[in-house]
Computed example of a mutant assay.
Amino acid sequence: MTVPAECERASAQFYAYLVDARDTAGLWSTHLAYTMTQAVFQVFRRRLSTAEAIAFANVLPVGLRALFVSDWTPGEEPRDFQERETLTDEVRSLRAAHNFSPETAIRDVARALRRHVDEAAFEGVLAQLPEGAGDFWAP
């Protein structure tokens, strides 16, 4: 049996995303793009049930899928989607002393992420998620 192509190229694809996110957000480091993406993923994930989170993760490239599910405690009660400003404050609270996410972090991650996923599959899963999910990932 062969290794799936997405697994063989996982590191290169993940780094390409980080560079894209870094440039989209105007950050100076892929380390900052990593933290920004991790925070955006955690904020989004908190608003999904476990089944919804798994469905969303399944449309992500393997490296981003791993980041999406890392440091997760499944089974927590999903939170409601709120105004973008409130969600952005939540993004910026992850490792606050080392988090340089801009006010546009959610939009920036959405724009970069959409360039690295199958758009039809991504939109398909968003259509099945709670109200607010589509707006969260609007570029």
Rank of each mutant, 00 (worst) to 15 (best):
V43W: 00
V43P: 03
A33P: 13
A53K: 04
A51D: 14
L48Q: 10
A51I: 10
F41E: 05
R47A: 07
Q42E: 08
A57T: 09
A51S: 14
S29F: 04
V40G: 01
A57K: 14
S49N: 06
V40K: 00
L32Y: 11
S49Q: 09
R45I: 04
F41Y: 13
T50L: 02
A33F: 04
Q42G: 11
H31T: 12
Q42P: 00
F56I: 07
H31V: 08
L32K: 13
H31P: 01
R47L: 04
N58S: 14
F41V: 03
R45L: 04
V43A: 06
H31K: 14
A55L: 13
A53Q: 01
Y34V: 11
V43H: 01
I54Q: 12
V43K: 00
F56S: 08
Y34D: 10
R46A: 08
F56Q: 06
A51E: 15
H31S: 15
Q42Y: 05
I54V: 14
A39K: 04
Q42M: 12
F56N: 04
A39L: 10
R46K: 13
I54S: 09
M36A: 09
A51M: 02
R47H: 09
T35D: 09
V40T: 04
T50P: 02
V40A: 00
A51N: 14
T30W: 05
Q38C: 08
T50W: 07
Q38T: 11
T30I: 14
A55S: 12
F56L: 07
S49V: 05
V43T: 14
R47G: 13
M36E: 14
T50Q: 05
A33L: 08
A53V: 10
Y34K: 10
A57H: 05
N58I: 02
H31A: 09
E52G: 15
I54Y: 07
A55W: 02
T37G: 13
F44T: 07
Q38G: 13
L48W: 06
M36G: 08
T35K: 07
F41C: 07
F41I: 05
V40N: 00
E52Q: 15
I54P: 01
M36D: 07
Q38F: 11
A53H: 02
R45C: 06
S29Q: 13
L48I: 04
A53F: 01
H31F: 10
A51P: 08
T50V: 02
M36K: 07
T30N: 08
Q42S: 11
T30G: 10
A57Q: 10
T50A: 12
A51Y: 01
T37L: 06
N58D: 15
Q38N: 09
T50R: 06
A51R: 15
E52P: 08
T35V: 14
Q38E: 14
F44L: 05
S29L: 12
A57P: 09
V40F: 02
R46V: 00
V40W: 00
M36P: 04
A33R: 05
E52A: 14
E52S: 09
R47I: 06
R46H: 10
N58P: 03
E52M: 04
L48M: 15
F56H: 08
T37M: 07
H31W: 09
A33E: 07
Q38S: 11
Q38I: 00
A57W: 02
T50G: 03
A39F: 07
R46L: 02
S49F: 03
S29D: 15
A33S: 12
E52W: 03
R45V: 03
